[in-house]
Amino acid sequence: MELKDALWRCARATTIKEFETRMQELKDLNIKAWEYLADINPAQWSKSHFSSRTLCDCLANNLSEPFNSMILEARDKPILAMLEWIRVRLMTKLYKKMKHIEKYTRNVCPNIQDKLEKLKHESIPFCATPLDRFMYEVDNGHERHVVDLTRRTCSCRIWDLIRLPCKHGISAIVKNLKKVEDYVHPCYLREAYVKTYKEII
């Protein structure tokens, strides 16, 4: 395993136990890298320590990169001309997004719907066993998790972190004869997308 892969496995860990296992793997691979990361608060870089209020699956600053590449053409302009160029570009982009979502007919936003379809496929090998009406133990022979449909949580913490049902949660939802899309956080719905792009510049 490469050092970079080991680092990302630590960062992507969603539970404390998984984080500790991944950190041990990193320590076995490169003690200096482990010492460096052990000095940094994991709440700043590992999902295992993130708050469940974040509603974000992002681990990097990729949001700023597309903006920086978009304004490349404007950087050489005088400040007022540059700001006007950015304003017009953003105005146009927001309008296009608004028009696009007006044509979209499904309830869950397109990218999130695509993610859900992939997760539905990944949930197939899992078997959900009811503990009570809304709690399930989900197992595939290699991993086991507890899903609470009332609280919309899973012991893997992925559902808790991004508020999108994980593959274990989807297995429990399907077993409970419910619609997966009904368990998606409101921030991922078409209505929220429309509100985001309704303002004009």
Rank of each mutant, 00 (worst) to 15 (best):
A6D: 07
R9N: 14
A11I: 04
A11G: 11
A13V: 07
T15W: 00
T15S: 08
F19W: 05
Q24G: 08
Q24I: 02
K27Y: 13
D28Q: 12
I31M: 13
K32A: 06
K32L: 04
E35D: 15
P42C: 01
W45Y: 06
W45E: 07
K47P: 00
L55G: 07
C56S: 15
N61E: 12
E65L: 02
F67T: 05
M70Y: 05
L72T: 12
A74G: 15
P78F: 06
L80D: 06
I86K: 04
V88C: 01
M91V: 00
T92H: 06
L94R: 08
L94M: 09
I101R: 04
Y104R: 06
V108R: 04
P110N: 06
N111G: 14
Q113G: 08
D114Y: 02
K115H: 14
L116D: 05
E117P: 00
K118L: 14
L119D: 09
K120L: 08
H121W: 11
E122Q: 13
S123R: 01
S123F: 02
I124N: 12
P125M: 13
P125Q: 10
A128C: 07
T129Y: 03
D132S: 13
Y136K: 02
R144L: 10
H145S: 10
C154H: 06
S155E: 09
R157T: 13
I158Q: 10
W159R: 01
L164A: 01
L164W: 01
I173T: 01
N176D: 15
K178H: 09
E181Q: 10
E181H: 04
E181S: 10
D182A: 05
Y183Q: 03
V184N: 07
